[in-house]
Amino acid sequence: MFAYIVKRLLIGVVTIVLVSMAIFALFWYGPSSPARPICNQETSNRCTPERLENFEEQLGYNNPIWSEYGAYVKGVFVGRTIEIGNSTIDCDAPCLGVSQRSRALVWDELIERLPATVSIAAGGAALYLLLGVPIGVAAARRRGSFADKALVSSFLFISSVPYYLFALLAWLYFTLIWDVPILGSSGYTPPWESPWDWFTGLLLPWICLGIFGCTQYTRYTRGAMVEALNEDYIRTATAKGLGPRQVVYRHGLRAALVPVITIFGIDLGVLLAGTLFTEYIFDIQGIGRWGLSATYSLDLPVVSATVLFAAIIMVLSNILVDVMYSALDPRVRLA
């Protein structure tokens, strides 16, 4: 088990290195000069070819790509000094560079924005698991009944609405038009400043993510439960004299939960890597928004950092899922 985790972590490191190289190369060889945004900024949009050339020289874009990549990697582990325009910035390890737009250290911005995204992701994921699984179990127990069919079709309807529209309508009505107390105030306040404001500010985003995500989890759970409840071991459990609750939960749900947990691990990773629409619609400064606006302004260090962050999260959540899978299903041996 331990050897397996070490092996997976090493493979993960290789994956992350490859991702960082790919994103570096993508910008390096891209059609637009990576120095142009900073040149525009420094010269108040009078970036002549000569000035651009100067900036490219200063930012190191005239050096070979591998030496610049080397400098970047070195910065991550030991830190480096970066010169932009007339200023020199000390970037301590882990140095992910300096945002070309805000001139702040990318690492500091990441740390600053991380709690908002983690708050949204954790709350939303918890809600959709807590809603989706019990509803799925209830539907599976009543499979074929009117209530089951009504639930399945109404959930299919919800999940066929695009999420951004769903969240936007929620924000529009609850916040803008009706201005519902508590629910209507959205935005991020760090929980260490005011837990109550943190909670109320994130309530609507959580509910949106929760309701939208739970439709999927209801489907997964219902499907897995229907399958599990038809297994022979469920009949054995009933034939032992166990009550319906023990049969459904201890024997049925225990088996049905394995695929659901697997999907949940990956989904949580996706959410942590950036809840883009949610952050945008509810005006929360999280990782997703940060990455998107950096992409618009070709802010290479920030884009690299967000992609790298997403890669790390996905690698970790995949390892976590595999380890959990073997913990949940004794037939799965990790090697």
């Binding site: 297994e231 022979d232 071991y233 054995t236 088996a255 949940l328 037939r331």
Partner: peptide, 11 residues
């Protein structure tokens, strides 16, 4: 039951 592998809970 027949097929004890299916009739016993795998977990």
């Amino acid at each position: 039951f027949q097929d004890a592998l299916a009739a016993l809970h795998p977990f």
